[in-house]
């Protein structure tokens, strides 16, 4: 288990979710889903550069870049027919993209359970988001090691 604290952006997202009643949380997840940025051109035709996350129930691909300043950039691709997966990806994008690598690595693995979505989405589906986070961390570690 990673122990760490949520960065302020992610903490605010968690706060947004948990401060509203159940049904509205799904609407918020839908908004995240709608807002997931499209892949930039350099990835759009190069699926082979992306890592697949098979733990998600629907296809999800992600790319992680750690730049020279140790800043993390995240890219996701999931089809419109998979709005939950898109929503999870979009939360991670909004909460982690542009942060320092150490800050991303410090994100507690269990944060996906803090969004108040367990009963609405089911723990099984939430596992997909936990898997995305762990793959992001693993990529950061391996890119730094490389």
């Amino acid at each position: 288990m990673t122990t760490g604290t949520l960065n302020p952006r992610l903490a605010e997202i968690v706060d947004d979710f948990t401060s509203m009643p159940g049904k509205e949380r799904l609407q918020l997840l839908l908004e995240f889903s709608d807002d997931l940025p499209a892949l930039p051109e350099r990835y759009a035709d190069r699926r082979d550069l992306l890592e697949q996350v098979p733990e998600c129930q629907s296809p999800l691909f992600l790319a992680v870049e750690v730049d020279d300043g140790d800043v993390v950039h995240l890219f996701f691709d999931a089809p419109p027919e998979a709005p939950t997966t898109r929503g999870f990806a979009s939360i991670l994008q909004a909460g982690l993209d542009g942060l320092g690598a150490d800050e991303v690595l410090a994100t507690p693995d269990e944060f996906t359970g803090q969004l108040g979505l367990n009963d609405l989405v089911s723990p099984l589906r939430l596992r997909g988001m936990a898997a995305m986070l762990s793959r992001i961390k693993r990529q950061i570690r391996s890119q730094r090691a490389g």
Binding site: Q27, S58, P83, V121
Partner: peptide
Amino acid sequence: DEDVLLYETGHIPGAVKLDWHT
């Protein structure tokens, strides 16, 4: 649906949602 949010993205007019997991 398999995807718990798919209904919310747009459904047949008048249709209700029935989710297995939840």
